[in-house]
Amino acid sequence: MKFNNLFNTDDRAVSPVIGVILMVAITVILAAVIGTFVLGLGDSVSDTSPQASLSFDYTADAADSTIEVTHSGGDAIPESATLTLNSDVAALDTTDELGSELTVGDTRTVGIDAELETGDTLNVIVGDRIVASWTYQG
């Protein structure tokens, strides 16, 4: 056995291994970025519905039943938002829309054609997504 073999500092194989690992990592990252743009996943990420906290107050009168929708916090609800009662827009009185943008602190009063029964659900919908839902508990 030669004494020089004990202190051999030949580490030529380390450099090619690191190079291969870096090339594989770069390939995976490029494939992910290109795949995201080709499949259009980047477009759907920004298409989100508003996140808001809404409270509801139901008042039943002999002549008129109303629900007050109050924006307690979060994103503004656009005026294009629709309200449905048990998935039926026609059950709401004069309007099925909020009328104007609903921001924090705003309140809108919506008339209802009939008295609510336990389990009736009011939904606030923006686009095709339900932003807030309220179920009457009697």
Rank of each mutant, 00 (worst) to 15 (best):
L22T: 12
V24I: 13
T27G: 14
T27A: 15
V28E: 02
V28Q: 05
I29T: 13
I29Y: 12
L30Y: 09
L30S: 12
A31S: 11
A32L: 14
A32E: 07
A32D: 08
A32P: 02
A32C: 12
A32S: 12
A32Y: 11
I34R: 00
I34V: 13
G35N: 07
G35T: 07
T36I: 05
T36P: 03
F37V: 15
F37I: 13
F37E: 07
V38W: 05
V38G: 01
G40C: 00
G40E: 01
G42D: 15
D43R: 13
V45F: 13
S46V: 14
S46C: 06
S46Q: 12
D47N: 14
D47P: 06
D47F: 09
T48C: 01
T48H: 08
S49T: 12
S49M: 08
S49R: 09
P50L: 04
Q51R: 14
Q51V: 14
A52D: 02
A52L: 04
L54S: 01
S55R: 10
F56G: 06
F56C: 01
D57A: 14
D57P: 05
D57M: 10
T59C: 05
D61Q: 12
D61F: 10
D61A: 15
A62Q: 11
A63D: 14
A63H: 08
A63P: 02
S65H: 15
I67V: 15
I67H: 03
E68L: 12
T70P: 03
T70Q: 00
H71Y: 03
S72P: 02
S72N: 15
G73S: 11
G73D: 06
G74W: 05
G74C: 00
G74L: 05
G74K: 07
D75G: 00
A76T: 13
A76W: 05
I77R: 03
I77H: 01
I77T: 06
P78M: 00
S80G: 10
S80E: 10
A81M: 04
A81R: 07
T82G: 09
L85R: 04
L85M: 00
N86S: 06
N86V: 00
S87R: 12
S87N: 14
S87F: 11
S87W: 10
S87T: 11
V89M: 08
V89A: 12
A91V: 06
A91M: 09
L92Y: 03
L92G: 07
L92M: 07
D93M: 07
D93L: 10
T94I: 11
T95Y: 04
D96A: 14
D96T: 13
E97F: 10
E97D: 13
L98W: 06
L98A: 01
L98R: 07
G99R: 06
G99T: 05
E101P: 08
E101K: 10
E101L: 06
L102C: 02
L102P: 04
L102H: 07
L102G: 01
T103H: 04
V104M: 03
V104T: 13
V104G: 00
V104D: 09
G105V: 02
T107N: 03
T107R: 08
R108A: 08
R108C: 01
R108Q: 09
T109M: 02
T109H: 00
T109P: 04
V110K: 04
G111L: 07
G111Q: 08
G111S: 10
G111W: 08
I112T: 09
I112W: 00
D113I: 11
A114D: 14
L116A: 04
L116S: 03
L116D: 00
T118C: 07
T121L: 02
L122K: 00
